[in-house]
Design a protein around this nucleic acid. Sequence first.
DNA 1: CTGAAAGCGCTAACAA
DNA 2: TTGTTAGCGCTTTCAG
Lengths: 332, 332
Amino acid sequence: VRRAITIIDVAARAGVSTTTVSHALSGRRSVSPATVAKVKEVVEELGYRPSAVARSLRTQQTEMIALIVPDIANPFYPAVARGLHDAIGGGGYYTVICSTDGERVAELGFLEEMISRSVDGIVLFSFAVDDTDLSRVVAGRVPLVVSTHAQVTGNDRVNSDDAGGAYAATRHLIDQGITEIAFVSGPEGQGPGDLRLAGYHRSLTDAGLISSDVDVVRSDYTAAGGRSAVASLLTRPRSPRAVVCANDLIAIGALEAAREAGVEVPTDLAVVGFDDIEAAALVVPALTTVFNPAYELGHRSGRLLLDRLTGGYDGPPREVVVPTRLIPRRSA
Amino acid sequence: VRRAITIIDVAARAGVSTTTVSHALSGRRSVSPATVAKVKEVVEELGYRPSAVARSLRTQQTEMIALIVPDIANPFYPAVARGLHDAIGGGGYYTVICSTDGERVAELGFLEEMISRSVDGIVLFSFAVDDTDLSRVVAGRVPLVVSTHAQVTGNDRVNSDDAGGAYAATRHLIDQGITEIAFVSGPEGQGPGDLRLAGYHRSLTDAGLISSDVDVVRSDYTAAGGRSAVASLLTRPRSPRAVVCANDLIAIGALEAAREAGVEVPTDLAVVGFDDIEAAALVVPALTTVFNPAYELGHRSGRLLLDRLTGGYDGPPREVVVPTRLIPRRSA
DNA sequence: CTGAAAGCGCTAACAA
DNA sequence: TTGTTAGCGCTTTCAG
């Protein structure tokens, strides 16, 4: 790790000024072909790599985008990261990823840190922050796209159509003539469960069916949770003919519960999940579920950012709602 | 996005020099308590955030680590990222992630770009690069940890014990008295299949069993590939009693093939996977597999880097082999 | 088509 | 305990 070659070394060896080297490489002003050739030759010879740090200090741009998510190891977020990566990579932007464990302090800390690092834009997936936090910390210093189930209005937003997805899932069951449909949600006020629950409710109502609170049970977002929730549902005197689950892990738990109770899926109990995680297609019976467009979320976030960065958009905050899509398989 | 507050603004408002502000904030030289208080007050009041870019230019450190992987959307790498993140986060380092699609040009391009950006260290997971590439592009400019199945000796390395894992998986079957054991590998020379195949061979040999080439079939690393490979295996006159698969997706395909052929798992056919992806525990029967310590790989990479960055280690390249572990479930 | 010189915002000798 | 000053390596006016 020795002293690096700088533009000065190149200029000296090529017998031109640093200005010319800079322009020969960037093409931002015309330089004689001979000079360009000479410069490039020296660059190659010396193995010169321009310092992006120095450039960033001068241009006030880092060409980096920060992605702040609750947990990079949760498969949903890598898909988001990939979408973002693909959207901004063409513009020469790179992604810095921060994993917050969903904790508010960590989210705010990373936000501050990334602002310090002069990233050109931030994409924040958050369960915890609100408008006040954001206006205090970010304060318009950098374009920000946020995806959260909380109330946030001061920034560009992107979200998947959770309610619409649950609506379609429920509708799919109703269309098969099933009317006793339960919903297994996550903990109240946590995650997307509430929005998905709302879609389920609306679907029932629109179909002229009564939706009753006893048909809604809560679980955490795990297979074990879903299994015990559905197991108890199945012991009821009038157990449901179908369950819509707030996510796929719960639904996979439901499958397990049914198997243990000797209940046939989908004949005796139809099961619908949400998210379309990898395992959904691999379990037996393959899970009918709602595709949650993580990649698309990331991609749209990137577009939103790029619009402000290079697209010249400078208007009020915009919201993008990415549609979800029912994936019919064997379980319903 | 207006002009940012700089250290000069703070110094002026606090009535001290920029040097004092710098030291009051960094604590790198003693400053009177009164001054420190005053400075911090002004910092708060003005909402000053030091520019990490300027600092990096001055100190020649960015406190960023680059992680270059084939595909961030493949669940294995997020786990690596998480491990790396956890290892280096305490040191104040952040992670930039680059996704290469496993292409050599992209890998080299990202390497160059990250060196340009003066990252303090690089972790590279690669299928494609070799020593020559690395010495040409990196040339000791930055600490590098590489994880690859190719021959690379000039840098710190980390790898999981692929051969050992396959050895243990095969042994697990032999211990149950099974002797007709096939192996479903990936495409030759691609990915970890060859190493795992070697472990399988050695296990057979050590147990005094003959390993024959006809027991090795090739597939790609997908469930569909595994399914057709194992389906054809099952039509053979002397079909095997067990299959060791080069990864979990292949193994899940094997489960499907068995179900379709009316072959009972594990009684008629025992199936072992490799990697322990999320779906492995969720399929039926739950998959016996070899845990591939992705998180640990990332974590150890981080430690290796930190050793060179701040731990004062400056010796020859080191190699870390992270042990794998058999996870016995229902399928074998 | 080319160069000289200023300065991005910070830290660290060196000096007091 | 504090300040002055010189850069880190680049881009970009301004001037020729």
